[in-house]
C-alpha cells in the first residue's frame, strides 16, 4: 500500500511542481491543540522565514499520541504534548533530542519552568505555555462568592447543570484533591475513592465538553463547571459576567511543550519554528490571544498592564502553591481509564 500511495503522491507532486515552478518547497508540519496558536503568528513566521506552515489540530493528548504512534516516518515536525505525555513519549523513544545551537532564544525562558521531572535537562521539550484548569462561573446566574472550591460542584442544586472537561485526568483531579490525595496518585485505592466520589457528581453533569469549553458558557448552556483559565479569559472578553475561580482544594496545573517527534521530516525547520515562537513579541501575541501564561520572560514587559495583572492569566503565588502539576502516572492510567468508562457507562 505504501508503495502505491508513494507513487500517487510523487505523481501529484511532479504535476504540482511543473504547474507551480515558483512554489516554496520549505515546509514545517505543526500539530497543535485546537485554538492554541494565533493565525497571525503563523503568517508572521512564513513572512520572516519563507517556510510554509502546514497546520493541523487535535483535542486531546491521547488522540495526538495514538496518531503519532501510527506514523513511522514523514510525520509532523512540531507537536505540543502536556508534561506527562512528554515523559511518556520520551521514554518510548518517540522524540528527537533538541539541538540547543539552533534555539538561541531559549535564554529568555523562566528557569522555574525548565529542567523539570518530566524532562530533566530539557532534552526533548521546551515549554510553550502553562495554565490551569479551574472553575468557570457565570456571575449573572450564580454569585461568584458562593463558589470557592471543587466541592461546590457537588451541591444538589446544580443537578444537570455542570460542564466537565472530556479528560480523564482532569476530572479525577477534582475528586482526588477533595479527598486530600495527590492528583497524580497511582494508588488503586485512592483512585477508587475518587471514582466513588465522582459517581455522586454524575447527576449534576450536563455535558462533557469536547470542543472549546468556553462556547457552552457563552451560549448560555451552562453557568458552572470546569474550564481552562485561557478559555475563561477569552470568554471574559466577550461576556464579562463569566469569571474564573481558583478552587481552594487546588487547581490542576499543566504545561504544554514543543517537541520534535522522531518521525519528523523537516527537523531544521522545526527548530526554526520553535525558536521563532520564543521571540518576545510572538510570545506576547500568544498570551493576549490565548489567555495562558508564557515562560518567555522578555514578553512580560511588552504586555498590557491589564493582561499582566489579570489573575485569570497569571495566578498568585499562593494559587500556584495550592495547585498541582500533572505528571505521568504510568501503568495506573489504565485504572483511571477503567473507572472513567464506568462513570460514563453507568447511570
Amino acid at each position: 500500500m505504501g508503495k502505491i500511495s508513494n507513487i500517487i503522491t510523487s505523481g501529484l507532486l511532479a504535476v504540482a511542481c511543473t504547474a507551480l515552478p515558483a512554489f516554496a518547497a520549505e515546509k514545517v508540519y505543526v500539530y497543535n491543540w485546537t485554538e492554541y496558536l494565533p493565525e497571525s503568528v503563523l503568517q508572521q513566521f512564513t513572512k520572516e522565514t519563507g517556510i510554509e506552515v502546514v497546520y493541523s489540530t487535535y483535542d486531546s493528548n491521547e488522540t495526538m499520541y495514538a496518531k503519532l504512534k501510527l506514523i513511522q516516518k514523514d510525520g509532523y515536525d512540531v507537536v505540543f504534548p502536556s508534561t506527562y505525555f512528554v515523559s511518556r513519549m520520551g521514554k518510548e523513544g518517540m522524540l528527537q533530542p533538541l539541538d540547543r545551537a539552533q534555539l538561541p532564544n531559549m535564554k529568555d525562558l523562566d528557569p522555574n519552568l525548565l529542567d523539570k521531572n518530566y524532562d530533566k535537562g530539557n532534552v526533548y521539550s521546551i515549554p510553550y505555555m502553562w495554565g490551569s484548569t479551574g472553575i468557570g462561573v457565570n456571575s449573572e446566574m450564580i454569585p461568584v462568592a458562593s463558589i470557592t472550591g471543587w466541592q461546590d460542584l457537588w451541591k444538589p442544586e446544580y443537578k444537570g447543570k455542570l460542564l466537565l472537561q472530556d479528560d480523564v485526568r482532569e476530572v479525577f483531579h477534582m475528586a482526588l484533591k477533595i479527598k486530600g490525595y495527590s492528583s497524580n496518585s497511582t494508588d488503586p485505592k485512592e483512585i477508587e475513592d475518587a471514582y466513588l466520589l465522582l459517581k455522586e457528581l454524575m447527576p449534576n453533569v450536563l455535558l462533557f465538553n469536547s470542543d472549546s469549553p468556553r462556547l457552552p458558557y457563552l451560549a448560555g448552556e451552562v453557568s458552572l463547571g470546569m474550564i481552562w483559565n485561557g478559555e475563561a479569559y477569552m470568554a471574559e472578553q466577550e461576556n464579562p459576567a463569566i469569571r474564573y475561580v481558583y478552587p481552594k482544594e487546588g487547581a490542576n496545573l499543566w504545561v504544554d511543550s514543543y517537541v520534535i517527534p522522531k518521525s519528523a521530516r523537516n527537523i531544521k525547520n522545526a527548530h526554526a519554528f520553535i525558536n521563532f515562537m520564543m521571540k518576545a513579541d510572538v510570545a506576547k501575541t500568544c498570551v493576549e490571544e490565548n489567555g495562558y501564561a508564557t515562560p518567555v520572560l522578555t514578553a512580560l514587559p511588552l504586555l498590557d498592564e491589564a493582561v499582566r495583572t489579570n489573575k485569570t492569566v497569571f495566578p498568585d503565588k499562593e494559587q500556584i502553591a495550592a495547585g498541582e502539576f500533572q505528571t505521568d502516572v504510568g501503568e495506573a492510567l489504565a485504572i483511571y481509564q477503567q473507572y472513567w468508562e464506568k462513570l460514563r457507562a453507568g447511570n
Binding site: E62, L206, L207, A334, R344
Partner: peptide
C-alpha cells in the same frame, strides 16, 4: 453532551483514548 457512552463512542474511546 457525551454524558452517556454509546457503542460507537466506546469503540472510538478504546482506539484513541484508552489505546
Amino acid at each position: 453532551g457525551a454524558r452517556q457512552l454509546l457503542i460507537g463512542n466506546l469503540i472510538q474511546q478504546q482506539f484513541l483514548n484508552a489505546r
